[in-house]
């Protein structure tokens, strides 16, 4: 159930890249758009300006998509989907899809426990006390 040993996960840029001047104008949404203007100081990477996203910020291939536990998430909709992770319980964790009822969640969690598969959201919709 515990994940295999891996190199430490390093996130090179934890903050979101917000679009230039989205803090100044309501009509400029924060979703990233690359500045294209001829005089734009962000595009020209002037000192003190916002950083632009680039490929160098990408995560190490070995830790990409990895959760802090060292697993990768695999979306499951039913107990049969958990069976797929039997041989991958050190690299993948089951994530129960949002539309699954609490009755079926209990089945999925029981199956996962049997197979030694980690479930990332075992508490969702499943309450023991009223």
């Amino acid at each position: 159930m515990t994940a295999v040993k891996h190199v430490p996960i390093v996130k090179k840029h934890k903050k979101r890249f917000n679009r230039h001047q989205s803090d100044r104008f309501m009509c400029v949404a924060p979703s990233w758009r690359k500045p294209k203007g001829i005089d734009n100081r962000v595009r020209r990477r002037f000192k003190g300006q916002a950083a632009m996203p680039k490929i160098g910020y990408g995560s190490n291939k070995k830790t990409r998509h990895m959760m802090p536990s060292g697993h990768k998430a695999f979306l499951v909709h039913n107990a049969n989907d958990v069976d797929l992770l039997l041989m991958h319980n050190h690299t993948f964790a089951a994530e129960i899809s949002h539309a699954v009822s609490s009755r079926k969640r209990i089945e999925i969690i029981a199956k996962a426990k049997k197979l030694g598969v980690k479930v990332t959201n075992p508490k969702g919709k499943v309450t023991t006390d009223v």
Binding site: R64, K72, N80, H88
Partner: peptide
Amino acid sequence: TAGGIKLSR
């Protein structure tokens, strides 16, 4: 998720 994983039943 996980970079487009493919498993088999």
